[in-house]
């Protein structure tokens, strides 16, 4: 059996692809649903994709592999070992946005290449929180009010 562990997350959000893209790529939005993190990048293939948590730490290191606004973003993902002690090789994250009438389907695929680990478990929980927060933010204009669980923030 291969060591690949892939998880797929699909969420329907009442918004346009452009707004959804903005919410994924603009710090003013990510701060409100991505564990408070800012995001910064040149948004081109090969560019670093830098997330910074409110305490300044980097939850994971990422490089853009492919980008097609407002439909598709692929980036590498290497968890910050200072945060979770992980030594996993880089994994791959793919965002896909599919417009469906007044709604968008956001699909995120996270492909891990080193079996189950603290990273697969942490990201599995993390993406669920991120996308429910993103949906709430775009549909209501208000962030999902969450008392961030320490252990989830700690494992990014």
């Amino acid at each position: 059996m291969s060591d690949n562990v892939t998880h797929v997350y699909e969420v329907y959000i009442r918004t346009t692809p452009e707004k959804l893209w903005e919410a994924i790529t603009d710090t003013r939005f990510t701060r409100q649903y991505f564990f408070g993190a800012t995001v910064d990048s040149d948004w081109r293939p090969g560019a670093a994709l830098n997330y910074a948590l409110p305490d300044g730490r980097t939850p994971f290191f990422a490089t853009i592999e492919a980008i097609d606004p407002p439909r598709r973003l692929v980036h590498s993902f290497r968890s910050n070992p200072e945060m979770d002690g992980s030594q996993d090789p880089p994994s791959r994250v793919t965002y896909e946005i599919e417009p469906l009438g007044p709604t968008c389907l956001l699909r995120l695929t996270h492909e891990h290449f080193a079996g189950e680990s603290v990273v697969t478990k942490g990201t599995h929980e993390g993406w669920q929180i991120i996308f429910s927060g993103l949906k709430t933010l775009l549909e209501t204009g208000e962030p999902l009010k969450i008392d961030w669980p320490d252990e989830i923030v700690a494992t990014g």
Partner: peptide
């Protein structure tokens, strides 16, 4: 076939999550 956790997360957010999430998860 993949398990999509999002619908269950939505159910959770609607009735359990929001303010109490931190405590429940802890």
């Amino acid at each position: 076939h993949y398990l999509n956790p999002m619908p269950i997360q939505m159910v959770y957010d609607r009735w359990v999550g929001k303010y109490r999430r931190g405590w429940t998860r802890r």
